[in-house]
């Protein structure tokens, strides 16, 4: 059995009377692609912020990459990658400058930065584009570059918040090829998406409803458990019971 990279026990976040995330207990193994699903307002972002060391839980326990989410938030930030639908790339820096910037922030040496830049540029097929401003790149390229800089320091785990919104179906799949390849090398992928077909690409999936994890298993078992033909049906069946509305 692979080691757990994320481990939570009754992890909870309250805002006043409102329980945004309610006693979440789950673990994610090394090299796993873990899909974290839920309707808008279900509590996904709150949970993710706690796991990334950006928000201190109200109660419960959790470790990420072996570090405690209460005490070791700085170590967590150094040991994870994060990519959101809103790109954190600098639009007015070039491709090469963005890679150098992120690699520098994560403390890579000059030698490492040089090697890593060449490797990334080659892997993404961006050889002719390194001097282009990121602003001039098509959305699909930005997403691929965004993912690459998020894992430039080779974190054990990368968190991705709706990474594929808005791109064409071919680009969306090329992006998943990158995810698969990273997972194949042992990196853990923690991903949210609104595309239900993408949830099928995950090894396991959790579905949050109103702050609670209502289901957690492989796509195959979830479909069996809820007698559904597709993940879309599973999700729809659970998420429409939600009482809460909100983002």
């Amino acid at each position: 059995m692979a080691e757990s990279v994320i481990k939570t026990e009754k992890l909870t976040k309250r805002f006043g009377d409102f329980i945004a995330a309610n006693e979440l207990t789950f673990d994610v193994k090394a090299g796993e692609i873990f899909g974290f699903l839920g309707a808008n307002g279900a509590g996904k972002t709150t949970a993710m912020r706690m796991l990334c060391g950006l928000s201190i839980p109200s109660s419960g326990k959790a470790t990420v990459a072996g570090f405690d989410v209460y005490k070791h938030t700085d170590e967590i930030k150094r040991n994870i990658g994060y990519m959101s639908q809103k790109f954190s790339l600098y639009e007015d820096l070039t491709v090469a400058e963005n890679i150098r910037f992120y690699a520098g922030i994560y403390g890579l040496s000059n030698k490492e930065i040089k090697d890593k830049s060449e490797e990334l540029v080659h892997q993404l097929g961006l050889e002719g584009e390194t001097k282009k401003l990121v602003r001039e790149l098509p959305l699909g390229w930005k997403q691929k570059l965004s993912f690459s800089v998020a894992i430039v320091h080779q974190p054990k785990i990368v968190f991705m918040d709706e990474p594929t919104s808005g791109v064409d179906p071919v680009t969306r799949r090329q992006f998943w090829d990158l995810i698969y390849a990273a997972a194949d090398k042992g990196m853990t992928i923690f991903v949210t998406t609104h595309y239900m077909d993408e949830s099928e690409y995950c090894n396991r999936i959790s579905i949050m409803v109103d702050g609670v994890i209502r289901a957690l298993d492989t796509p195959y078992n979830l479909k069996k458990q809820f007698s559904a033909n597709s993940m879309d049906e599973v999700f729809y069946g659970l998420a429409r019971e939600a009482k809460r509305t909100g983002d």
Partner: peptide, 9 residues
């Protein structure tokens, strides 16, 4: 766009 599967339906 950006709306969950239930609201989309």
């Amino acid at each position: 766009t950006g709306v969950d599967a239930v609201s989309r339906k």
